[in-house]
Design a protein around this nucleic acid. Structure first.
Length: 854
RNA sequence: GCGGGCGUGAUGGAAUGGUAGACAUACCGGACUUAAAAUCCGGAGGCCGUAGCGCCGUGCGGGUUCAAGUCCCGCCGCCCGCACCA
């Protein structure tokens, strides 16, 4: 017997060429029902990684499956091509960010194509193409016209040595990553999208996103952060002119009688006003401002306060005075940037009060406690209860007290109930080169003037250098100086570019008409939108998805998307990450030097660096990332085993939503299995006629086939590809062991190749062809399971006694409940347990279980 | 700090509230081979020496239920996000 080995190296390119020639994956509008499947597009780092392989294989499984079901499938690919890494490369390697990026795109396309994805490559786009970002500029101008864009002052991280703005990522322990200088906060006038105006709408519409993961919907809702509260005014004593009142916002107006201090942010106008005369406060504020701008950093910092000496009077009792502190944990961006502190019922306030020795008065008492004895120690009480120590509110529930307090404040004319959102407007200004230029001109006469549409795209100048830190656009000799589009006088271009999140907030719409000279084309958007299935990492659960949802609404307002597309993603699947251990050696400055897995060897006494033998610190299993170098190169796997093996492996074992840990042995196992499938095929080709027909055996094989169809189909439908793979493993065992005749086995393998096609398309074509399938399996219709073949005549039912499994009986599948009960009571184990008595209770779940309670 | 998630054999994992560990990896044994690889067949959660109709077992502690990996409450650990990383 000469069973040839399956050779992926020759087979895979052959079928890829065949698909290309037949244009199998080209998507054109037609009369069929469409299906748009999209994976989050990659940043062109230069190498694909296992996360990409997993992401795009998942999408490909869905695309091929839907196509087999008769849908007109759109499955495109593009590049999220603007961003900081290109500028870093420019600084480090003295290459132009554009050259670097396009080279990376070429490299990654070259690595991606051998995966055999069912992508319509004619729709490929890159966000750094003027063809793309020019349309983005047009939309920016449309959004300006509709009042969706404005400018305001906002803080950035400022590196005083490099004289440049830093991203949060570039601030390490409060210092600039290159200069090492202590980072300062600096206010700049920046461009914003009015996303916060859509807070309520974005929140309410979450309920319509039925096919999104619950966790993402919760995270988005919490991010928008709607709260009902009270905004009211304190009267101040001893404050500078203009600050006779201090507005605060609270979600706990019920606790007003527990107030013991007021606190304002160091960026609050009052804090700034006080700085001038109070050097100590100025120093304190400066200290506060030294921390980065990230919310995480602010909230984690030890609570610090500075007593301003100013007091405010309690709104309900004007002779009751509260001190006003500047505190480092108050965010200027939320509410009014000022609060009142009720230590007994807020942990942060309590920590603060203990530190500065302020009064702690409980005003909510749990129902099961005596109000006279109830005190608060080191833990604030945040649960339910009745009001105490609260004058007119005493005895009320929290909710009733909230209403009462708000009404009283309103009666006093000091404020009103207010709905507040945590969501802030979207700052899109970036003081960087490698991004989409904001298409406006600053004219001394006309002010801010949008560029004329016919002058778009405002292209990035090519002649820039990165020798000096900062934004090269800012110091470009000619690009910056232009004539005002309105009056023609000398003016200056805006040198800020857009946040790369803008680029990724509408690419899904652009894919429906990627070459159009308008952002979208009505008919195409109408036909292809929405994305039926969107697939990507959980790390994008909030920002990217929320921005995209906002952008779709904005594009509807500006006429670039139909109303039905304001929620652009019908179904969302968030895949887990591909993780790997990290490896590092200590660097000269004490910071770890990260090492790639192929720089590391595992010896008996632990991991060592191959080059020098130095010991390696093995870090935890974390998301594969370039910065930590814990990356495995899929190209090596594809080289060694072929794309089908890589695809089969990433679909095996781990449920798609969970993290998967890369292992070499897993790839080996996948390869062995694919070889086995081919061996079965090849053996059958040679021995087809030798086996004799046997109706029972053939029926068994047919039943196994239909069970497999059912399980694989359900697995794909419910995004449990690992279960589909397991069903195929099992089915392969059945086929291998079956003694059914050649024709029956041939049929089983034809079906198997159809079921494997979404995961391992090349091998599937080869098996399909060998078994005499018509045309290409990529174009064959998905098999249907015959329900009659899925049920067995008899079932085995476990018998439990008091919930513990003691025996089992085999009964006809359609046996009536009372008959099963009768049989169960006759069972020896049950008889023994009953010991002559009668059962207390007997539960029969047909097809499942019998439980006898004695 | 805040928000969200996850936790099952040596390992990845399976299990509409109904036989926990399907399927796979690693491991052990056998067949084939001069030998190895490959392939095929078989074994296997733990404990009790053997043995049973035995006991224990889904991060930890409680609870609901005839029945809990699954539902509820409280912990612990790990991971993701926190608005200028993409």
């Amino acid at each position: 017997m000469s069973t040839e080995r399956y050779n992926a190296k020759t087979v895979e390119p052959k079928w890829q060429a065949a698909w290309d020639d037949a244009q199998v994956f080209k998507a054109e509008r037609d009369t069929r029902e469409k299906y748009y499947v999209l994976e989050m597009f990659p940043y062109p780092s230069g190498r694909i990684h296992m996360g990409h392989v997993r992401n795009y294989t998942m999408g490909d499984v869905v695309a091929r499956y839907k196509s087999a079901q008769g849908f007109n499938v759109l499955h495109p690919m593009g590049w999220d091509a603007f961003g900081m890494p290109a500028e870093n490369a420019a600084m480090e390697k003295k290459v132009h960010p554009g050259d670097w990026t396009y080279k990376n795109i070429d490299d990654m396309r070259t690595q991606l194509k051998p995966m055999g994805l069912s992508i319509d490559w004619s729709r490929e786009l890159a966000t750094c193409d003027p063809e793309y970002y020019g349309q983005q500029q047009a939309m920016f101008i449309d959004m300006m016209e509709k009042g969706l864009v404005y400018r305001k002052e906002a803080v950035v991280n400022w590196d005083p040595v490099d004289m440049t703005v830093l991203a949060n990522e570039q601030v390490i322990d409060g210092k600039g990553w290159r200069s090492g200088a202590a980072v300062e906060r600096k206010e700049l006038t920046q461009w914003f999208f009015k996303i916060s105006e859509y807070s309520e709408e974005l929140l309410e519409a979450i309920e319509t996103l039925n096919d999104w993961p619950e966790k993402v919907r919760i995270m988005q809702a919490n991010w928008i952060g709607k709260s009902q509260g009270l905004q009211f005014r304190f009267d101040t004593i001893g404050a500078p002119e203009g600050f006779e009142a201090l507005d605060v916002y609270t979600t706990r107006p019920d606790t007003l009688y527990g107030a013991s201090f007021a606190a304002i942010s160091c960026d609050h106008p009052l804090a700034k006003a006080l700085e001038a005369k109070n050097t100590e406060l100025a120093a304190f504020n400066a200290d506060c401002r030294k921390s980065g701008t990230s919310e995480e950093e602010l909230e984690k910092a030890p609570k610090l306060g500075f007593d301003t000496g100013i007091t405010v009077t309690h709104p309900f009792h004007t002779d009751w005075k509260l001190p006003v502190y500047v505190a480092n944990f108050i965010l200027m961006g939320y509410g009014t940037g000022a609060i009142f502190g009720c230590p007994a019922h807020d942990q942060r306030d309590l920590d603060f009060a203990r530190k500065y020795d302020l009064v702690v008065t409980p005003v909510v008492c749990p129902e099961d406690q005596d109000p006279d004895d109830f005190t608060v120690g080191d833990e604030a009480y945040v649960g339910l209860g009745r009001m105490i120590n609260s004058d007119f509110m005493n005895g009320m529930t929290i909710d009733a007290a909230k209403d009462a307090a708000i009404n009283k404040i309103a009666d006093l004319g000091r404020g009103a109930g207010k709905t507040q959102y945590r969501l802030r407007d979207w700052g899109v200004s970036r003081q960087r080169y490698w991004g989409c230029p904001i298409p406006v001109v600053h004219c001394e006469t006309c002010g801010i003037v949008p560029e004329k549409k016919e002058n778009l795209p405002v292209e990035l100048p090519k002649d820039v250098n990165f020798e000096t830190p900062g934004n090269p656009l800012d110091r470009h000799p000619t690009w910056r100086d232009v004539a005002c589009p309105k009056c023609g006088k000398p003016a200056k271009r805006e040198t800020d570019t857009m946040d790369t999140f803008v680029d990724s907030s509408w690419y899904f719409a652009r894919f429906t008409a990627p070459r159009a000279d308008t952002p979208t084309v009505k008919e195409d958007a109408e036909y292809w939108m929405n994305v039926d299935q969107y697939i990507g990492g959980i790390e994008h659960a909030i920002l990217h998805l929320l921005y995209s949802r906002f952008f779709a609404r904005a594009m509807n307002i500006t006429g670039h998307l139909p109303q039905k597309a304001i929620e652009p993603f019908n179904a969302l699947f968030t895949q887990g990450m591909v993780t790997h251990e990290t490896y590092s050696t200590p660097g000269p400055d004490g910071r770890p030097v990260w090492r790639t897995p192929d720089e590391v060897r595992f010896a008996e006494n632990g991991a060592v660096l191959i080059e020098t033998g130095e010991p390696i610190d093995v870090g935890p299993m974390i998301k594969m990332s370039k910065s930590k170098k814990n990356v495995v190169d899929p190209e090596d796997i594809i080289d060694q085993y072929g794309a089908d093996t890589a695809r089969w492996f990433v679909m095996s074992d781990s449920p798609p939503e969970r993290d998967v840990e890369w292992t070499a042995s897993g790839a080996e196992a996948a390869w062995k299995h694919l070889q086995r499938v081919w061996r079965l095929t090849a053996e059958l080709l040679e021995n087809d006629e030798t086996t004799k027909s046997n109706a029972d055996l053939e029926k068994d094989l047919t039943k196994a086939t239909h069970r497999c169809i059912d399980e694989v189909t359900r697995g794909i439908e419910e995004f449990a590809f690992n279960k589909s793979v397991a069903a195929l493993y099992q089915f392969t065992n059945v086929v291998a062991k079956s003694k059914a005749d050649g024709a029956a086995k041939r049929q089983a393998l034809l079906t198997m190749s159809q079921l494997m096609q979404p995961m391992t398309p090349h091998l599937a074509e080869e098996v399909w062809q060998a078994m005499g399938g018509k045309g290409m399996v990529a174009e064959a219709a998905w098999p249907k399971a015959n329900p009659d073949l899925l049920v067995d005549d008899t079932v085995t039912l476990p018998i439990q006694i008091n919930g513990k499994r003691r025996d089992e009986i085999e009964v006809p599948a359609d046996l009536a409940k009372n008959e099963i009960e009768k049989l169960a009571l006759e069972n020896a184990a049950v008889q023994k347990a009953l010991d002559g008595g009668s059962p207390k209770k007997i539960i029969v779940v047909p097809g499942r279980i019998i439980n006898v309670v004695v």
